[in-house]
Design a protein around this nucleic acid. Structure first.
Lengths: 344, 344
DNA sequence: TTGAAAGCGATACCAT
DNA sequence: ATGGTATCGCTTTCAA
């Protein structure tokens, strides 16, 4: 016989946490029957009166099944773990993310975000693996190494999906081709006759995943047309923008793609304060089509990004989980197009 | 003897998921010893050579402990569950939230966000309770009823903390006194001689938790001074702002507190387009001190909100978990002050 | 210093 | 139609 364990049997509400055994006792049936009733097991037939008694007992005790015990027994969970980002996100992404979670829940998955700020890639992967998720969907802001993927798969994860700007070995890579954003913006500037094009590169950490590819895309477009691209490091602060505006004329740029609408607004304001006329002297293009881009004058031209539907991605996750053998897919999720207003 | 279970023993990597038994076998020791070594159990002394062998075996197999099994055995988890919001958040909140999570992890908690979009309050509480979190910290955007709190506590949650605008029975209520924001803004407008004050109330759902108290605070301040407050419903769209601006003169307002900087910018632009001069004819005050408030002209006056440190809140959670008996605290977490610029 | 074994809660066989 | 029971992975007591 073992001794009573060290845990306190009482809880704040005064009673111990009810288990299925408690429900069984109260209903005068076995734990097996409780399980059958509460899970609507179709393989077994339980009489209606018994079902009633069990349900009432569960209700009375405030019984909630213990997910850990269940998944331990089952040998798997239906948890989808999403390493959560530390970057404040815009309304676009936010909407997508909600749809995604909602769709996953409809497919009967438990969606959990795991905040991993300040953890090393491998360390983080181990922490996630402890929860034995059936799938991990990394939304790109968190590092995920081949090593980390291996840890997750060894621990039973049936699918690892990265939604980012580049592929990671062993994962389903959903590519958000940020390069297209820079390409579309630059093509537009070229069409309006600009030849020396600045590309704002935010200095804030955590944005490199987006800004790098956007710059590359701009370079590609410019190269095709024999135009020039100049990277412009910028912090999201007035001082930084003012400093950039102060040396604008010596840069000799006639167009600028400003990473996104917020940086574009910031820069445009500084340019105007420095006496540089937009769009006559320099055209400005942002990205994300935020409402605020319409508030400043001239109204900001922008690249509108249409993201994949959350539901689509959820179905892809579901598919990846069920067909572990299927080869990793690699799809592009973005569609970008220019919205021309007055700043270009 | 029971039959082999229904679960597949193989995983995608080809091998089965390693358990502590596998580690024990490879190291040539018992499972108990593995547990002692891997958890650095101080009550037992294991020889250094044995420790080595165990650690190497664990490393080689890529062993990661099974959190569910562990907490099942332990009778409790160290999971802090945070129902995640569906509202896009600003940089201020985002920073606080990261700090908070980081601090909790330092205190050895596992922080997990649970997306509950589209779930009823009680339904959501049950879903959370299945994970048997030791604490639930609701950041205000999600509904949490007394009923829900009861479910959580019955399921073993030692602390339920709400960080919101109003108290919920049975919880530690960390109050973010949004009323102060409206009060501070309105007091400022009164000091500059304004007497008929509009208060923007966003029509977007999910913002009621903030906008209601802010309006109430404005009313309190106005009442003390014998001034008038007029609520102004507004959608975050240009058309809505234009419509409001079109009937501005008949409203006869000489000051407006616009909920936050974004709504303030939106409204100010429409006012200017309608030929109403800011601040001469109408003063405008926002809130949140966003950078974008400095981009439009005149520069936007705002209410700067200082939020509690994430670390403080984490310590409070830890305390609540350890001292279940302690009475629910109720603290104010915000400090608001006016930042006067040119729009007022 | 190490091992054997009980048991956390839920489930799904098999037998009744 | 129900009940008994072995089992999932891990920790910890007790015995050796």
């Amino acid at each position: 016989m073992s001794q009573p364990t060290e845990q306190s049997p009482e809880r704040s509400s005064g009673r111990a946490v009810p288990t299925s055994a408690d429900v069984a006792r109260l209903a005068g049936v076995s734990r097996a029957t409780v399980s059958y009733v509460l899970n609507n097991t179709s393989a077994v037939r339980i009489s209606e009166p018994t079902r009633q008694r069990v349900r009432e007992a569960a209700e009375e005790l405030g019984y909630v099944p213990h997910a850990a015990a269940r998944s331990l027994r089952a040998g798997h969970s239906r948890m989808v773990l999403i390493p959560s980002s530390h970057v404040p996100v815009g309304p676009l992404y936010s909407r997508f993310f909600n749809d995604f979670q909602w769709a996953l829940r409809r497919l009967d998955y438990t969606v959990v975000q795991y905040g991993s700020v300040g953890l090393e890639a491998e360390e983080a992967a181990r922490a996630w693996a402890e929860l034995r998720p059936v799938a991990v969907v990394s939304l790109g802001e968190v590092e995920l190494t081949g090593q980390g993927v291996e840890i997750l798969k060894r621990s039973g994860a049936r699918a690892v999906i990265t939604l980012g700007t580049q592929r990671v070995e062993g994962t389903h890579a959903l590519v958000m081709d940020q390069g297209r954003v820079g390409e579309v913006a630059t093509e537009h500037l070229l069409e309006t006759g600009r030849r020396r094009i600045g590309v704002v590169v935010p200095e804030e950490p955590g944005l490199g995943m987006f800004s790098g590819p956007r710059l590359d895309g701009a370079r590609r477009a410019a190269e095709r047309a024999g135009a020039t691209v100049v990277p412009l490091p910028l912090r999201y602060e007035e001082e930084s923008a003012d400093a950039l505006a102060a040396r604008w004329r010596e840069l000799g740029l006639d167009g600028v793609f400003a990473y996104n609408d917020e940086y574009a607004m910031l820069l445009m304001r500084s340019l105007q304060d420095a006496g540089i006329s937009v769009p006559d002297e320099t055209a400005v293009v942002g990205a994300d089509d935020l409402l605020l881009g319409r508030l400043l004058r001239p109204r900001l031209s922008t690249v509108r990004i249409d993201m994949v539907l959350g539901r689509e991605l959820a179905e892809l996750v579901d598919h990846a989980v069920r067909e572990t053998d299927a080869p990793p897919v690699s799809r592009d999720l973005l569609d970008s197009r220019i919205v021309r207003r007055e700043s270009s």
